[in-house]
Computed example of a mutant assay.
Amino acid sequence: MYWNLAMMDCNNTTLDLNIGVNDCYVTTTGWNGLTMLQTVRTFDGNGKTMGRGFIEMLNYLSATFYRKPLRSRIRMALRMMQFIYYPILAIIAVPTNIVTIVILSQKKCGLSRCVSHYLVAMAISDLLVIIFELILRHIPFVYLEQHHFLEGIPVCNIHAVLLYAATDCSVWFTVTFTFDRFVAICCPNLRSKYCNVKTAAVVLATVTGLSCLKNIFWYFLFSHRYYVRSRPWLCWVKNVLKFSSVWGAIEFCHYVLTPGVAFIPILLLNVLTVRHIAVTNRSRRRLHQQSNKKGTKDPEMKSRKNSIILLFLISGNFVLLWSASMVYSINWRMKHLGYESVYLPLFVMEMAYMLQMLSCCTNTVIYVITHPKFREHLKNIVYYPFTPIVKCIKH
C-alpha cells in the first residue's frame, strides 16, 4: 500500500513522497530540473529502521515535520534520540553496575551485611537487564540496517526467558529490600531474626528461583524465532495463541505482576514506615527535652534518617521510572482482549522503554548521593588507573 503526497517549500521545490510498507523514497525536483531520489529510513513498531543512517532520518523529519500530526513527530523525535540515548546508556550502565557490585561486595561502605546483600543483588539484576534487554534487544533493532537475520537465530525463546527472569528479579529484589528496611525500622522484635545475612540469602535465592520458574513458560509459548515487526512481543507467537483468551490471560498476569503488583507493597510499606518514623521521632524529641540534651545529636535518629533516605530514593526511583511501562503494557494487552478504555499513542511506548532502561543505572547515583564512604571508594577506583602516571610525574 502506498501513499502519494506532494508538498511545496519556500523555494518552490516539490517533494513527492512515496511511502511504502518497507521503504520511503523522497523525490526532489528543483529549479535546475534535476530529480534526486533518496532513500529515507522508515520505522516499524519494533524500533526497526531501514535506510542509511541518522542523517537521512533527520532530513526526512525536517522535510515532513509540519505535515505530520503531533503524535508522529514526537515518536520520530524519540526514535532519533534512541540512536544516541541507548548506546550512551549502555556505555554508562555496564561499568557503573560492575563498579557498584565490586564496591558493595567489599562491605566497607558502612552498611550492614544484610543491606549490602540486597544492594549487590539489585545491581547484578540491573546489569543482566541491561545486557539482555538493552544491548541484545533494543540496540540491534535501532541500529542494524538489515536485521532479518535475527529471525534465523533459534534462541529467541531462551532470550525471552532470561530477559523476563532478570526483569522480575530486578523488580522483586527492590520489594524485598523495602520489606527488609521496614522490618528493621518498624519491627524491633523481628529485627534480629529477619534482618541478617542468612535470611537475606534465603529470600534472594527464593525470589530468583520463583522468577525463573514463573518465566519458563515463555520458552514453550514463544517460538525460537525473533519477531522484529511489532512490540511488545519479542519472539514469534502463533496466531492461535496470540489472540486466544488463555494467551491473553497469561500475558496480562505477567504485566500485572511485574511491576504492577510490586508497586502495592512498596507504596504500602513506605507509608507505614513514614508513619512509624513520625511517631518515633516525636517521642524521642520529648525524651531529649526532658533530659536537657538539646545540644547533643541522637545517633539512632541519624542512622534511621540515612536508611530512610536510601529507601525512599530507591523506591521512588523505581516507581517513577517503571510507571509508564506498566500502564502502557497493561493497556496494550487489554486492547487486544477487546477492552480499550484509554487510547495511548505509540510514543508513550517509546518513552516507557527509555525510562525503564534508565532505572537500571540510577541506583549507583543514589548510593553516591547518600553514602560518603561509597563516594570515597568510587573515587579511588576512578583514580586508580592514573595513580602510576601521577607518581611518575612527582618523581
Rank of each mutant, 00 (worst) to 15 (best):
W3C: 09
N4C: 07
L5W: 00
M7Y: 08
N11Y: 02
L15I: 11
L17W: 08
I19Q: 15
V26C: 08
T27L: 05
R41N: 14
F43K: 12
N46V: 03
F54K: 14
E56T: 07
F65W: 02
Y66L: 13
R67Q: 09
R73F: 01
I74N: 10
I74W: 00
Q82M: 11
Y85C: 09
P95W: 02
I98F: 01
I101Y: 04
K107P: 13
K108A: 13
H117T: 05
L119W: 03
A121L: 04
M122P: 06
M122G: 12
A123G: 10
I130M: 12
I130F: 04
I135C: 15
I135G: 10
P140E: 08
P140A: 04
F141M: 13
V142F: 08
V142A: 13
L144N: 07
E145L: 09
E145Y: 01
L150K: 00
L150Q: 03
E151H: 05
I158K: 10
H159M: 00
H159W: 03
V161C: 08
Y164E: 11
F177L: 07
F177E: 01
R181K: 05
N189C: 03
Y194G: 06
V197W: 03
A200P: 08
V207K: 05
T208A: 14
S211N: 06
C212S: 15
L213R: 04
K214L: 12
I216L: 09
Y219S: 13
F220V: 11
F220N: 13
L221P: 15
Y226I: 04
R229Q: 15
S230L: 06
P232S: 12
C235K: 02
V237Q: 06
K238G: 15
C253K: 01
H254F: 02
V261I: 03
V261D: 13
I266D: 05
L268M: 11
N270I: 03
N270W: 00
L272V: 08
L272W: 06
H276V: 05
N281L: 08
R285K: 12
R285S: 14
H288D: 12
H288P: 11
Q289M: 00
Q290T: 05
S291L: 01
G295A: 01
T296Y: 05
K297A: 09
D298Y: 03
P299H: 05
M301I: 03
K305N: 10
L313M: 07
A324F: 01
S329T: 03
S329C: 11
S329R: 13
W332T: 04
K335Q: 04
L337G: 14
G338F: 07
L346R: 14
F347V: 02
F347W: 08
V348Q: 08
A352H: 06
S359L: 00
T364P: 15
V365A: 15
K373R: 13
K373S: 14
P385Y: 00
P385M: 04
F386V: 11
T387H: 07
K394S: 01
